[in-house]
Design a protein around this nucleic acid. Sequence first.
RNA 1: GGAUAGGUGGCAGAGUGGUUAUGCGUGGGACUGCAGAUCCCAUCUAUUAGGGUUCGAAUCCCUACCUAUCCUCCA
Length: 451
Amino acid sequence: MKFKDTLSGEIREFVPVSEGRVKLFVCGPTVYDHIQLGNARTFVFFDMFAKYLRARGYEVFYLQNITDLDDKILNRAREENRKWSDISDRYLESYLEDSRTLHLDSVSHHARATRYMPEMISQIERLIGKGYAYVSSDGVYFDTSKFPDYGKLSKQKLDQVEAGARVEVRISKRNPQDFVLWKFSDEEPFWDSPWGKGRPGWHIEDTAITEHYLGPEYDVHGGGTDLVFPHHEAEIAQMRAISGLPFLSRYWLHGAFLNFRGEKMSKSTGNIVRVKDLAMEYPGTAIRYFLLNSKYSSELLYNEEVFRASMEGWKRLQRAFLALMSEHSCSEACNIEKDSKDIINLMDEDLDTRETIAKLHVIATEIFRGDLTPSKKRKYAHIYRFANSFLSIFAGEQRSLDKVVESLISLRNEFRERGMYPESDRIRARLREAGINLEDSGKETTWNVTG
RNA sequence: GGAUAGGUGGCAGAGUGGUUAUGCGUGGGACUGCAGAUCCCAUCUAUUAGGGUUCGAAUCCCUACCUAUCCUCCA
């Protein structure tokens, strides 16, 4: 299996540190608002990635942090005149709800930042002890001049970085690129530390959490590309300064943005579509189809027109899936992996979900053409099942034994045979109101559940 | 100013040296009580512009123009 590693800038063959086992860490959300579709793109991609690794036989420990303390959470609390932890609790719950909608069920453990305060303080102590951090007037800072590899991940040369391009340079820092590990503060919320009351900087939570669960070095670290600099750069600096090892993560995997109205979908600019709003109209599997029907390393365009067009493609595949699943269940005789060789080849080549979906469409055409041999049909059923084990874009196997529906269908067909169409149409209309769609093809009537 | 991706048919978006990507849309046909779905055909010899390498370039090289993103809020 290969994928694009940000650190080397190359598509590299993936070899985990321990054979057959993968330690994966992905930066989770800051819980200060509902997540939007751009966030979902990254989370869906890594969910698919973890599931694909498992489908290929790896044992995967997938760790995700939750940033439940941050200036944005504090600001929101102030605006709403509520306790900061009420805000983070509420939006963490919202995130978990959206995760269920989107079938993000591959995470082994969610780690909330504020529960790892001793681990963070321990890391800062060790950094100071080794001379990589210093105490200043308003906080503790990491001294980037002591860590020569700072900038290597993002391929930035420090002397070329425009200091203060977006944020004021603080005079309390030794170098403009130095980042804060601990911010002094007497205002709630604060924690005690050897250097005084305050709260942690943004970057330290991830290394504290990953060191706790995965150790100082692990296999894959993921996130959106906006985190490459400075966040992931800072994580590398922190952990490697402590461990002295050549890597924090062996592979760095970054997902590209979702663009909307000519720019990145982003809360700060207000051009967002919330997952919750989309989920009112479309099932989570369909939203996943839209997000995965793209190359993770390329920007993806969102607008209503493109999304609706994508939904048409999803419906087509969903029908093909139902057609296959209604007739074939996977028995002990299946050889899913062998039948899915083509898909595995596509996926092993830089996680090409888009080509995989294109392949499913080609199969769909063959299925709908309707002249398949039973063995070919079984093979295609295996392929769909295998692809769905990591894409999670199909749901709702046809319940052909649901006797109530079946008997209504046969009643309706009696009416149809006698030409009593007003009666037959009423049955169809009533079932549709109940969310059940009937479709006639010749003498056969099939049905499926919408939503 | 520095860094990273890109610019492909009506739309979205693959393809990294020679073959129909794929989906959506549109038009026509088949099937059908109607609806829906599906199939077939067409749109479809598309590759930002200008040079170069090559028997052959969307693909490699150079130049120009354009777009998105990052340079301490961010998935």
